[in-house]
Write a protein that binds this DNA or RNA. Structure first.
Lengths: 200, 200
DNA sequence: AACCGTTTTGAGTGATCGCTCAATAGGTCG
DNA sequence: CGACCTATTGAGCGATCACTCAAAACGGTT
């Protein structure tokens, strides 16, 4: 019974991810997906059950990668605070190599704003993933506090909320299409604020 | 030929505005609009030409109100910087009176993220309005500089970009559904940063 | 090569999409 | 009060929506 699947599930999910990320849930039609995944409707439904479930699968995939990025900051040797600041600068310096994906706003945020009550599962999922991201960031700030980089009475969760808002604003600014200079300047301002926590 | 219009254009535009704002362009159907405006399709098309044009009309309406809010900060007596900080605190304290509209992300941002190449006019318009908002904010920071509140070498446009990113992040946090406490705390952190420009 | 079970196919489902237009209703005139 | 004219109506247009299923194609086993 172990017939190899003629389609590449990973590649299909990636194709769906980028399509959904770019166009959003409502504006992406089954026809679009058929073309991007190079699968017929029947195959898509056999493999992913429904458009909504496929979206949820791509969202999970996206989240996994985002979380890994933040988690990597914790694993870095050296200053957690500098890692956070440097990450902001990286977001402000979008690589033009990966097909302008870096010029897209965060998919979790796009999902949060796109979704209506008709797709409650998607909205709930996006909120959950955003909460998870916040926890991940909180952990980095907690590490910074443990290392004495921020005052002992600082609230890591509160700092994380601010940091996440900065990331959101910065990535939307990138989406909006500012010049590399203004984008880098904005990221620099945010990064300096993070590093300024050290002095205080 | 001066027959009075049996429908109230202002009320209809407001209804369309709130519907579009809440559901977004793609997820709002003509059926939804018919119900919200209490107009039949023919009337809607006679009055507003198309769904896209109606959206543009509501977007302009929204923008006008947003701009007025920022413009009011300039007219305020007293410190421009304090006015900007206080405005942030106001966004962090969403009034529950106006039907949770304050808990919605900025419509310009929602539009920016929702729109695809198929609605290029809408996207271009949203970008334009966001640029206008930035100019408005820049003018307030320029006033603050003229009043000696921020250093003479500060760049008002750059400060405005940061401020706008803060507003974006804050309003999306409100949309996400944080508690009043965490939302107020986030706004407070941002407001303090604005006021800290005075000391520097 | 014949068989079997799974996967893929793609025409086609009813519903809904944005939108049109001939018919109707209702105010404003002579 | 009837003629006129514009605003409103709503059934219905072709296109597209998300989705289904009977049939064909395929890989592994015998």
């Amino acid at each position: 019974m172990t017939r190899a699947r003629p389609y590449d599930r990973e590649a299909a999910l990636d194709a769906a991810l980028h399509l959904f990320w770019r166009k959003g849930y409502h504006a992406t039609s089954l026809k679009d997906l058929e073309a991007a995944l190079r699968m017929k409707p029947g195959s898509i439904y056999a493999a992913f059950k429904s458009k909504e479930d496929l979206y949820l699968a791509t969202l999970e995939r996206y989240f996994g990668r985002q979380r890994a990025q933040i988690a990597a900051l914790r694993a870095e040797t050296g200053s957690p605070l500098s890692a956070l600041a440097e990450f902001l600068r990286g977001v402000g310096r979008p690589a033009d190599g990966d097909g302008a994906a870096a010029r897209q706003a965060c998919m979790l945020i796009k999902t949060l704003l796109d979704v209506t009550e008709d797709e409650a599962r998607i909205g709930a999922r996006a909120r959950f993933y955003l909460d998870e991201m916040q926890s991940e960031i909180t952990a980095v700030f907690a590490a910074a506090r443990a290392a004495g980089e921020v005052p002992p009475d600082a609230d890591p969760a509160r700092l994380a909320r601010r940091y996440q808002a900065d990331i959101t604003g910065l990535r939307i600014e990138a989406h909006r299409g500012g010049t590399p200079q203004t984008l880098a300047a904005l990221a620099e301002d945010m990064a300096r604020d993070v590093e300024a926590l050290r002095a205080a």
